[in-house]
Computed example of a mutant assay.
Amino acid sequence: MKANQISTGKIIDGKEVFALELKNSKGSYVTIYNYGGIINNFVVTNAAGDKQDIVLGFDDFDSYLSEDYLENYPYLGVIVGRYSNRIKDGQFSISGKSYQLTKSLHGGESGFDKKVWDILPTVDPSLTLQYISPANEENFPGTLTVQVTFKLSEEDELTLDYKATTDAATPVNLTHHSYFNLETHGGNVANHHHRMPASNYLAQDEEYIVTGQVLPVEGTIHDFRAGKAIGKDWDPAEGYDQSYVLDTPYGELALASETTAASSGLKLEIYTTEPVAHFYTAKYLNVEKAKGGKDYHPFEAFCVETQHAPNSVNIPGFPDTVLMPGQTYTQTTIFKVSK
């Protein structure tokens, strides 16, 4: 069955915005907007037999466009690109030529999260979105064609397969920015149990810019290798906003994180082919009148953003993020829910 398409009635930049729903026979479903690739719902059955939505978002599409939301914009559930996280001073060089981007987060002032993606025909029970980013958009070189395919399995695995090609050398570092909360009634995520197979993390400066220094997690608050409550070692005023180097060889699909919540009995495992997972516990989250009329506050969600290292375009020796003509960027990330 193809994704069910429901029009939102909105036309943005001449393109219609749809809500697209993927379902499985267990009654689990995912709702995705072709605006920003937003995962608006990810509904599964918890240990008590109740339906539970594990991602943050809104009850209606219009709220994603509201001034109040955009003023303190947290990138709820979006595709991030061309370049996730931060590039130092918004600058990089390719083959001796320097480029200056808007100094901002997650791809610029109007990144992939604010674009209406085309819906491509598919033969499987899946959804493929495509966006063609023109040369010099947000000052990035090259025309970049990006496709992201979403597929929901019978085992409640939501797979995201990314593919991108370019006609000129350009940095590419894509991720998805879903905010998760596995507790039955939401709230602070400090009691979620979290595990990450990462023996090292990446040093950051005062602006959260990755410096290139790789540090061991052993003996620090960043050691999640054996698993622990998210709030066990954190500074409750800061939480986590940190990139971790996964122990698995780059390119091999393997576990990036495993998170559970006692109240729901749910477990979320995230698998990826990417070398880094950025773990963020939503320090800056501040959203009013979200799903069910609830307000979202700091530390009431967590994100695991699978990607290459932030700022790696400026760090020799880190896995390369420059895509060349004739090459194809690929990435797979899987969100698997069980109980």
Rank of each mutant, 00 (worst) to 15 (best):
V210F: 00
A198W: 04
G186S: 06
E206K: 07
H193R: 09
I221E: 15
A190S: 13
A190K: 03
D205M: 00
F180N: 08
F224D: 04
H194D: 04
V214D: 07
R195M: 12
E207C: 04
N191E: 13
P216S: 12
F224Q: 04
V210C: 10
E218L: 14
V214L: 12
E206Y: 03
S199W: 06
V210W: 00
Y208R: 03
G187C: 06
E183V: 01
L202H: 02
I209H: 01
H222G: 12
N191R: 09
S199N: 12
N181E: 01
V217F: 12
D205Q: 03
T184W: 00
L215W: 06
N191F: 05
E183D: 14
Y208V: 05
G187P: 06
Y201F: 15
A198C: 10
P216D: 11
L215G: 08
D205C: 00
H185T: 11
A190R: 02
A190Q: 09
G227D: 11
E207D: 13
P216W: 04
G219N: 11
V210N: 02
G187E: 10
Q213G: 06
H192V: 02
G212D: 03
N188P: 05
T211Y: 08
F224I: 10
H222I: 06
P197M: 08
L202Y: 08
E218Y: 13
E206R: 07
R225H: 14
G187Y: 05
T211Q: 05
V214M: 10
G186T: 03
I209A: 03
G212C: 08
A226M: 15
A203E: 14
D223T: 13
I221W: 09
F224V: 10
L182C: 07
E218H: 14
T184R: 04
G186M: 03
A203N: 08
H193T: 10
I221S: 15
V210M: 01
T220V: 12
A226L: 15
Q213F: 04
V217Q: 11
L202M: 10
N188V: 11
T211G: 07
S199D: 12
T220E: 14
G186N: 02
I221C: 13
Q204F: 03
G186D: 05
V189Y: 01
N188G: 04
H194V: 12
H222K: 12
V214I: 15
H222Q: 15
L202S: 04
N181H: 01
Y208C: 06
E218W: 11
G186C: 09
G186L: 01
I221R: 13
V189Q: 01
R225C: 13
A190C: 09
E206P: 00
